[in-house]
Computed example of a mutant assay.
Amino acid sequence: MKSEIKVLLVDDEPHIVQFLQLGLENEGFEVKTASEGMSAVTIAKDFQPHIVILDIMMPGIDGFEVCRMLKKNGLQASVIMLTAKDEVDDRVKGLTLGADDYVIKPFSFEELLARMNARLRNQFPNMFGEVVYGPFKLDDRRREILFQNQVLVLSPTEYELLKYMILNHGIVLSKGMILDKVWGYSFQGEENIVEVYVRALRDKLKDKEHQLIRTIRGSGYRLDLP
């Protein structure tokens, strides 16, 4: 199935491009590359990728402008931005322009792959049937999550939160990241809402010992699969 998924990789650092292209092709993706922004926009028109991995700091037009142009041209791809910057303003700017996720350099290939798969399943659910992750079975077309073969009764927000955590299992998710992806970057409420919903999910999963959804002190939450 991955051979059907097209990835456009945009970065001006040859060693990063070579490393990621080799890894992604070994995972079965069809990959095209660009080393600067205008080439990326041109390639995207013909290639029509499902996902764009886009560096922010590039010569000529930067990744923010490339993202804006891609979205303006109607590209339906998910956009994951690579950046050495960990500033909130940059994250908000990218999300406002249509980016779907951020990966901060340096990063592991496994983390990027997990985020890619999460974005693909979210944006192109019809390419996926039921997907099994340990004791979880996720069917986004039916908007159902089964745990140990039992359908969980979830509110829409609980569903989105648990789906986000399952698709990013093993990755520490900060409250800010969760708010961006589940509630939206324009959410003006308190971060404590995340704690309330995590507590509700733990109750429904009978996770009294926090063995599934772990609290990483000072960092956020991580869903671990048995």
Rank of each mutant, 00 (worst) to 15 (best):
M1A: 14
Q48M: 14
L223W: 02
Q211S: 14
M1Q: 04
Q188C: 10
V79I: 10
K93D: 10
R202F: 05
I193H: 10
F47G: 04
A40D: 01
D62R: 01
L8D: 03
V196I: 08
S219V: 05
H50A: 01
F109M: 15
V92N: 01
G94C: 05
E65H: 13
M69E: 11
A40V: 02
K45D: 15
T96I: 12
L179M: 14
L161W: 02
V132R: 09
I193L: 11
S35F: 09
N73S: 12
V182K: 11
K175S: 15
R119E: 11
M165P: 08
L9F: 02
Y133F: 08
R142I: 12
P226Y: 03
T96G: 14
L167I: 04
R142Q: 12
D101W: 06
D140W: 07
G220Y: 01
N122D: 06
K163R: 14
K206V: 07
E190M: 08
Q188T: 13
E36K: 15
A40E: 02
Q150N: 09
I5W: 01
I56C: 05
L54T: 02
I16H: 02
E110R: 13
S108T: 12
R143N: 04
D86S: 10
M127A: 03
V182A: 09
R199I: 07
H169P: 03
E27V: 08
V41F: 05
R142Y: 06
V88L: 15
V131Q: 08
Q18S: 11
Q150I: 03
